[in-house]
């Protein structure tokens, strides 16, 4: 475990749901820059909650998350929004693309609210569009597909790649992925993961990949079993 260049650290994270009764305590987690982490756990083990906490979307009841040595608990909600836009990419289980935009436009949304990421993606609209096209092609989506007008018309696998490109554009420091391959069959899943991790390597993007499918673990630098213990509140 490298601590020289810390990307991500958690400290004594605890999360209580407002309904009481239910609570989650997480073991401390750390990742270095560019490191890829496979987070594994059965359903209901708090994977999504952990991702929410790592993205700064959920506020922990106690403990703290530090990304790039910046503590979420010390930031305002608006500052966390900015930080997330600048440094985090997120791939959703449901992809969450806007069906009325073209695939390229959807990818560009990933850096629409961050000047930093726009700059890293090329700065000008033409260069950013070229970068989006490159990403889509690298992830296995040919020009004949992304030149289609509507994202809504793409297949699930194709949408998956658009969503990944959106999370990666502008080289975020950390990519969070929430079971993004659950809709894919085994062979395309492996191919996709390979391409995804190659792209992450180009930018030096660290990855936290959450899945219940242990078969994927071999693609990652490290595997962490989510051994969160339910605690009494």
């Amino acid at each position: 475990m490298s601590t020289a260049q810390p990307l991500l650290r958690t400290r004594a994270l605890r999360h209580f749901w407002p309904d009481g009764g239910h609570a989650l305590a997480l073991e401390d987690l750390a990742a270095a820059r560019g490191e890829s982490l496979f987070l594994h756990g059965p359903s209901g083990s708090g994977k999504s909650t952990l991702l929410g906490l790592l993205a700064g979307v959920l506020a922990p009841s106690s403990g703290d998350v530090l990304i790039l040595d910046t503590s979420f608990s010390s930031m305002s909600a608006a500052a966390r929004d900015r930080f997330r836009a600048n440094h985090l990419g997120y791939i959703f289980q449901q992809f969450n693309l806007l069906p009325f935009l073209t695939p390229i436009e959807n990818v560009l949304l990933g850096c629409a609210w961050s000047a930093e990421r726009r700059k890293r993606a090329g700065g000008t609209h033409v260069r950013m569009a070229a970068e989006a096209q490159r990403l889509l092609s690298s992830l296995g989506l040919g020009a004949h597909v992304w030149s289609r007008t509507k994202t809504g018309e793409l297949s699930v696998g194709q949408q998956q790649r658009v969503a990944a490109a959106r999370a990666l554009i502008g080289g975020p420091a950390l990519l969070l992925a929430d079971e993004p391959t659950s809709a894919l069959d085994a062979s395309s899943r492996d191919a996709f993961l390979k391409l995804l991790l190659e792209e992450c390597a180009i930018y030096g993007t660290g990855v936290v990949f959450v899945s219940h499918d242990l078969a994927l673990a071999r693609h990652f630098d490290r595997t962490v079993a989510l051994a969160s213990a339910p605690v009494e509140s």
């Binding site: 929004d81 836009a85 997120y90 806007l98 949304l109 990933g110 629409a112 609210w113």
Partner: peptide, 15 residues
């Protein structure tokens, strides 16, 4: 839904 997506990719509440 659209707003939620935008929010998730980094759009601020103000946006």
């Amino acid at each position: 839904r659209e707003m939620a997506v935008l929010r998730a990719v980094g759009a601020s509440t103000r946006t």
